[in-house]
Design a protein around this nucleic acid. Structure first.
Lengths: 257, 257
DNA sequence: ATAATAGTGTCTATCAGACATTATACC
DNA sequence: GGTATAATGTCTGATAGACACTATTAT
């Protein structure tokens, strides 16, 4: 029998092995800022990324993504969930795998292969959390700040750039907008959320397209009360606006049809 | 000074580290089979996955994805390129990252975090290669065989299922169809390639849509000779068919517009 | 002539895109 | 009444979807 066919002959330490496999999390949130105007109006929404200031070597003092090393009893998804909770206090939000970062030399601590995730969180969840800890060590930055102004540790600028591209794509092709909205929302709110993530999205006939084109049936439904009457809200506008909620249907997109 | 701020105090071996970070490759190819008919006709095209029969423990004798461990002087993408070449003889084809597989216990050799890639290769490249090595050890299987009939090693069934979903999505949303086609091709060939990967794709007006809708301008262009006359081919049909080539434009897709 | 695949005509309903207009509130 | 946002009307041209029809070759 071939001696490679025996477990007892297998030596897991024959070659050098990685020094760690962390999960790093790009946590996106939409901040809402009240606007002081004469009449009711939508708050300003801005896409922001959470960063923490590093205390330890390497890159001590620099801003970087929250994250930490995976353990041998958990999947990387579980690592990301755990670190998200430990480092930022956020629990159970949308968390999705992005990519792996493995260029030799990317981490001065050794051979460290990092797995990036991105999370989407409503601002309210963060506000509770932030009050609870050391304010100077956690920051919410706009994408422009994170990508152009800050000097980030590791290759985290690349990771954030990739995550931004991914979230823009998903914002247009899926219904992840729901992660930044309450259960029931107006179409202006939805439009504003999309534009906050994809600034060059323009759709003058947005309301009509989303409400009355056959090909988009199944994305949204009107909210109705127990008598079947449409429910509207005038929280953000003079004239009340119809409330909608997301359904689970996402049309299949194709460049060929 | 905080003692965590010194490189000299950093111990990379304080915690258990992974026993390896392999790259596994889901190599897709479209096999072409001549059909014996009275007249000229397109060959049958079928999507297939390359598997190798394992020689060593674990899962010796079972079919599994080609792949191998990453080294500390290369990125995982480079690992995948190298393994693709070493294990299958294929060089320089489309190779793209898929996802990470890290469930505890997924590999009996230890704590091994696997990185799946997928590759797209024309059949011709494989044919040259296959003749050159031990025929029994390499196989090309249809997706149905790989997912339903074979008993694969590791979690490779899940990986193939994920890769299949991904390639179906990309086939409709990008121009990766070009990876399975010659530089210049007819619209029937393109349609056939799409259907080989996404069997339920149906578009009766395919030719008209791709050639004469404004919103799809920039995907394809007609091949023309030095005098500007359209070039056609009758390799696969009685009546010659116009040849096309891909351009670099891919329209941005959105469920909202 | 016949068969086979490539490609166009044609018709209706739907959709896109651009503006104008009306509707419903608060002030 | 004035103002702000929500929603609809309306018009033109483009597209979708279905089916019939014509075109170009090999045999």
């Amino acid at each position: 029998m071939n001696d490679q066919n025996e477990q007892s002959n297998y030596d897991v330490k024959k070659y050098r092995t990685p020094d760690g496999a962390p999960a790093d999390i790009v946590m996106f949130t939409l901040t809402k800022r009240e606007r002081k105007t004469v009449t009711k109006t939508l708050p300003l929404r801005e896409l922001r990324v959470m960063l923490i200031r590093r205390r330890a070597w390497p890159f001590a003092g620099k801003w970087a993504l929250p994250g930490g090393f995976s353990r041998d009893d958990e999947s990387l998804y579980e690592t990301a969930m755990r670190e998200l909770k430990e480092e930022t206090g956020v629990v159970g939000r949308h968390l999705e795998y992005l990519s792996v970062y493995s260029d030799p030399g990317r981490d001065p601590r050794g051979w460290i292969i990092s797995h990036a995730f991105f999370a989407l969180v409503e601002e309210e969840v963060l506000e509770k959390r932030q009050a609870a800890d050391d304010a100077g060590e956690v920051g919410l930055f706009t994408i422009e700040e994170a990508l152009e102004e800050l000097d980030l540790g590791f290759d985290h600028r690349d990771i954030i750039a990739d995550a931004y591209r991914r979230i823009q794509e998903k914002m247009l092709q899926t219904t992840i907008a729901r992660k930044f909205l309450p259960q029931e929302f107006t179409l202006s709110e939805l439009y504003q959320v999309i534009k906050a993530v994809v600034p060059d999205f323009e759709e003058p006939n947005f309301i009509r397209k989303i409400t009355s084109t056959r090909s988009r049936k199944g994305i949204l439904e009107e909210v109705r009360d127990e008598n079947g009457n449409p429910v509207s809200s005038n929280q953000y506008s003079q004239r009340p606006a119809q409330l909608y909620r997301f359904l689970d249907n996402v049309p299949r997109l194709s460049i060929y049809s």
